[in-house]
Design a protein around this nucleic acid. Structure first.
Lengths: 144, 144
DNA sequence: GGCTATTCTAGAACAGTTCTAAACTATTGA
DNA sequence: TCAATAGTTTAGAACTGTTCTAGAATAGCC
């Protein structure tokens, strides 16, 4: 009942990813990177990831989940998406894009950048510069 | 040092507003409506409003602030704006528009709807309909 | 191996929000 | 006018998601 079921270099790309941003590849960070990045683009909350880690028999404390998510975000591996006060989503897709957000259920879906065109943006207020333009399309079940 | 400094019908429009959405005009709701709507467009958090109420010598509990903000939102008098996980803003401008958000300090500024054009929006996922399109332009102090 | 800086952890602390049950108040209608 | 009653307010407890803390564990280096 241990870590030996895993193949020889299961963390290869996770390892590279960590190295590339200068984060020491610890057991926990490797496991989380693997969960986060080896399954296509994802939107996870800290709790989601914690649960997944537990299910994958990876011992990681919640505090470490938070630390890691923030370190990854700071390093540019993740992007924080705010759509819901009181819950924080992290997006493994760090290329330019936007989101559909399901009001109920709280699910997020990517909209590729070319799927939306924002035009005619006014100048940012004096002394500031734009750090990101975020479009959130809130959707709800069709009522009829 | 009391409520007698106020002119004869200080709540006239607040009253109308409450009546128009079918909310019983209580002392607290009238006072909050006055604070919210008689000073141009505003973005407030529950705490902000609570503080203002205290400063205006209006006795209102925090629970009532929350109740009222939600009732007003439900009634369409306010709009909830999510830009920051763990803090909730309410916007007294319920016409179509978007926002600049100052990352530091957490200040919000309206961008009139005609100041931004969102085009080329993809269809919402099956079974859902768009309930709102929100554009948040995050800005930070120019660093040089 | 041993040393040191970094990382991890459990649990406490914290912030913002919601809940609860009891007290209060506006409205109705006799 | 005065109850009756349905809606509202309140203090404080509870809850949720997140951050902090201080000690234990670990990675990287000699």
């Amino acid at each position: 009942m241990t870590k030996d079921g895993w193949m020889m270099r299961p963390y290869a790309s996770a390892l590279d990813r960590l190295r590339s941003v200068g984060l020491r590849p610890t057991r926990q960070r490797l496991a989380l990177a693997k969960l986060l990045f080896e399954a296509g683009h994802r939107h996870v909350t800290a709790e989601d990831l914690h649960k997944e880690a537990r299910e994958a028999d990876v011992g990681v404390s919640l505090a470490t989940i938070y630390n890691t998510l923030h370190q990854f975000t700071e390093a540019g591996l993740l992007r924080e998406v705010v759509v819901d006060s009181g819950r924080c989503y992290f997006d493994t897709n760090n290329s330019e894009h936007h989101h559909f957000f399901f009001q109920d259920g709280g699910r997020l879906i990517d909209i590729p950048a070319h799927g939306i065109r924002v035009e005619n943006l006014p100048e940012p207020p004096g002394g500031t510069e734009v750090s990101r333009v975020e479009v959130i399309v809130r959707v709800a079940p069709t009522r009829k």
